[in-house]
């Protein structure tokens, strides 16, 4: 606990009031040590992205206590944000800029000096095989190319904690391998990786610890070896078991021609 990098106590988040109240996070408690790769998984609407947005300071209004680097997220978020990186789920970038311009923009927001920023942007573009596109406007880029830029922008400040929300979305197989290896190496260098994904095989392979949430609460927490059971030998099976997926027989004839009952 003393060396913990992220401590979450009784984290709750809800939207609306009265009958319209929607409790997205009900009671999350976590302690995360440095250098871990955390696979944060759960079904759609379980609260994964909301947790990440709270931890990155995008959603400042929440109940409970969150400390990162020993600092209170509610009162010292500016200081915390300097040392974290975030790769969003959506293609959130200014695509009328070029990669060079965008990385320079993000780096400046972190207060990086011009020389350091230029060399770091050059290294990242080269690592992802994007150097020949560095001066092209990103509105012509494919989804995968934009995703690479988002990853670069998420780590350009050399953060101590990296939050990634579906970072492999749209990437080709070679880049997926590249990103997986990069995350493993970053963790070896002492950085904490907080990784949300629906790609169970990737999470199973790279995560030191897997946290499964469902309906706003943690339903499983441990290494894959600790969590797997006789009946659930893969993470995908474990996920289905704990989140209550029913193995209904799929009848496509009904799907397209059957009548709908409410």
């Amino acid at each position: 606990m003393e060396n913990s990098q992220i401590t979450i106590r009784n984290l709750k988040k809800s939207y609306g009031k009265g009958d319209n109240k929607n409790e997205v996070l009900k009671d999350i408690n976590l302690v995360i040590q440095p250098g871990q790769i955390i696979g944060y998984i759960g079904p759609n609407g379980a609260g994964k992205s909301t947790t990440v947005k709270i931890l990155c300071g995008i959603i400042p209004d929440f109940e409970g206590e969150v400390t990162i680097f020993g600092k209170d997220l509610k009162t010292e978020s500016m200081e915390i944000k300097k040392h974290i990186g975030y790769v969003p789920e959506t293609g959130a970038l200014y695509d009328l800029l070029t990669p060079n311009e965008y990385l320079s923009f993000i780096g400046t927001l972190y207060g990086l000096e011009k020389d350091k920023l230029e060399s770091r942007a050059g290294n990242l573009l080269s690592f992802f095989g994007m150097e020949k596109h560095s001066d092209q406007r990103m509105d012509t880029f494919s989804k995968g190319m934009k995703q690479k830029i988002l990853i670069m922008a998420g780590i350009i400040n050399n953060p101590d904690i990296i939050f990634l929300d579906e970072p492999l979305s749209g990437l080709d197989a070679n880049t997926v391998i590249l990103v997986k290896d990069l995350l493993i190496q970053l963790a070896k260098d002492g950085k904490t990786i907080f990784y949300c994904s629906h790609l169970m095989d990737v999470v199973e392979k790279i995560s030191d610890r897997i946290i499964l949430i469902n309906n706003g609460i943690v339903v499983a927490d441990g290494t894959f070896e600790e969590l797997k059971t006789e009946k659930a030998g893969t993470l995908e099976m474990l996920f289905a078991q704990l989140t209550g997926r029913k193995d209904n027989e799929i009848n496509t004839e009904n799907l397209f021609n059957g009548s709908h009952k409410n």
Partner: peptide
């Protein structure tokens, strides 16, 4: 629209 670009950064 640019919340995901700006809000995670240390901008007051």
């Amino acid at each position: 629209r640019d919340n995901y670009i700006l809000l995670p950064r240390p901008i007051s």
